[in-house]
């Protein structure tokens, strides 16, 4: 690999590589999705996994939690879940004669929000607000969420009865939206023949600390994006705004998210600078769920986002 403008400390580098490898050893044949999960983590964004039940969404989240030395909470979203159930509640303490805040399950560094679309919009909003602001406010008092704060939410797109799918505007809160899909034949064979995933995860040893993640996030900010790369990113953004099949193109915030994700991808790939390939690798997960289609075409958002990549030349 070519030299990096700001080299990552060797220990950090090996830890990151080991962490990625460890998650890959649990979630078989999903190297790119695992990669994107780390991209999201290091870019300081949240991850939405949208797929059918049973393809390993929860396994991925668990593997991440076990690999990263982070406090972990899992919230199973249901239709009767209330905001206070996830945020926490103030209870009157008779001993001290005052209200005391009891933090809810959201107060963890890694939160798995399972089947987020089953909760009511009110509860969803509470979660999304916390994700955006890194803090919650109860009874007029703000409580900071722990850092790093990383939410992995899952959503089942098919099972629509009694669900409240996230509206487009709120999808924007997630940096990346990925889907896992069925494993390949070889991966599935290994899955079937090897030990129970739960047991494997239970044996995993964490290999990255919260402090290390913070350092890596700082390094993501220092990844070089050259003028040529910015040109390319701008080309991608502008084509979404002028495309016949798209009603609402990428917002400036989406552009920033794209660049941030690309930087993070570069860092995970071991480079201190961004390549067009980094942008291409993150473009579909970053952009697809942010596009609003005009209905003029027959392609869905994923197909369209992939097609857009072929329409913008790299100089």
């Amino acid at each position: 690999m070519p030299d990096t403008p700001v080299a990552l400390p060797a220990e950090l580098r090996t830890n990151l590589d080991r962490a990625v490898a460890q998650v890959n050893s649990v979630v078989l044949g999903k190297a790119s999705q695992v990669n994107l999960a780390f991209v999201s983590l290091l870019a300081g964004g949240h991850l939405l996994i949208e797929d059918l039940p049973g393809v390993g969404k929860t396994t991925l989240a668990h593997a991440l939690a076990a690999t990263l030395d982070l406090s972990f909470q899992r919230i199973q979203f249901t239709s009767d879940l209330l905001p206070s159930d996830i945020i926490g509640v103030s209870i009157f303490e008779r001993d001290h004669n005052r209200f005391e805040f009891h933090p809810g399950p959201l107060f963890a560094q890694l939160v798995l929000a399972d089947e987020i679309n089953r909760a009511t919009p009110k509860t969803q909003s509470a979660l999304l607000e916390a994700m955006a602001e890194q803090q919650v406010t109860v009874d007029g008092r703000s409580h900071a969420l722990p850092a790093p704060f990383f939410v992995v939410a899952t959503q089942n797109p098919l099972d629509l009865a009694g669900t409240y799918p996230l509206p487009d505007s709120q999808l924007d809160r997630f940096l990346l939206r990925i889907s896992l899909d069925y494993p390949s034949r070889e991966a599935e064979r290994e899955l079937l023949t090897s030990a129970n995933r739960q047991q494997i995860i239970a044996k995993l040893a964490p290999c990255m600390s919260a402090a290390e993640i913070q350092t890596l996030r700082e390094h993501v900010g220092a990844v070089v994006t050259s003028p040529a790369l910015i040109d390319y990113v701008q080309g991608l953004i502008s084509i979404t705004r002028a495309h016949a099949e798209i009603r609402i193109g990428l917002s400036p915030r989406a552009g920033l998210a794209l660049l941030m994700a690309a930087r993070s991808h570069a860092l995970v790939a071991g480079r201190g600078y961004c390549l067009p390939e980094d942008v291409q690798a993150v473009f579909v997960p970053v952009a697809a769920h942010r596009l609003t289609l005009s209905g003029a075409g027959t392609r869905d958002r994923l197909q369209l986002a992939r097609a857009l990549l072929n329409e913008v030349p790299v100089r």
């Binding site: 070089v224 040529a228 600078y273």
Partner: peptide
């Protein structure tokens, strides 16, 4: 290609 990538993408100018 290493040179090109370095000149084009690893530098601001």
């Amino acid at each position: 290609f290493a040179d090109y990538i370095r000149l084009r993408y690893a530098r601001r100018d």
